[in-house]
């Protein structure tokens, strides 16, 4: 599937949302879930679907079935783990909470990269997350050739890598 342009991607997401969310919501409501739970689970399923199958040629024809399948799986997992959470909360109430736990700080570094290196992050996201080919990258970002797109990709990778290294070493709390 071609999802290089934002409008195309938005269309695909809208179509999938419109055609699969009602069935997903029905499935979850029948099992005692709320609208908010159905929304959260379905949106997570869409993310998983996008990461695994959006560029998979073979999966194109059954994308709705895939998406619904992922939703059911996530609901089942959540339902099972909520029982565990309930048990855990009991333990916590009894005074066994883990005092060494700290918030993960990757979001802080992400925030910093969003502000300092937006252009490179957009380009790298297009390559590694949206899985654009070098030809698509070249046309989408206005490079003369696939080669210059590839060179720019590595330049950005180097730049972001150096920022990550520098900031992580400055503020040790960026690291887990």
């Amino acid at each position: 599937m071609q999802m290089t342009e934002y409008s195309t991607k938005e269309k695909v997401l809208t179509t999938l949302y419109e055609s699969v969310f009602p069935a997903a919501a029905k499935y979850i409501s029948r099992r005692g879930g709320t609208f908010e739970q159905a929304k959260d689970i379905f949106q997570d399923a869409l993310v998983i679907w996008y990461e695994r199958f959006s560029t998979d040629e073979k999966a194109v024809h059954s994308q709705k079935a895939y998406l619904f399948g992922i939703t059911k799986h996530l609901w089942y997992r959540k339902f099972a783990s909520e029982k565990e959470t309930a048990d855990f909360e009991l333990t916590e109430a009894a005074g066994f909470e883990d005092k060494t736990y700290e918030e993960p700080s990757a979001p802080k570094l992400l925030q910093l990269l969003e502000n300092a290196g937006r252009k490179c992050m957009q380009l790298l996201k297009a390559v590694y997350y949206d899985k654009l080919s070098m030809a698509e990258l070249a046309s989408g970002f206005g490079f003369r050739s696939e080669h210059s797109a590839a060179v720019q990709k590595y330049k950005c990778l180097e730049k972001v890598r150096e920022t990550v290294k520098e900031k992580s070493l400055c503020y040790e709390d960026f690291l887990e």
Partner: peptide, 17 residues
């Protein structure tokens, strides 16, 4: 550090999606 960078790009992409 390059491995860390790929992880951050993944997180960045996911957040936008």
């Amino acid at each position: 550090w390059q491995q860390k960078t790929y992880q951050l790009i993944q997180a960045y992409g996911r957040k936008q999606l």
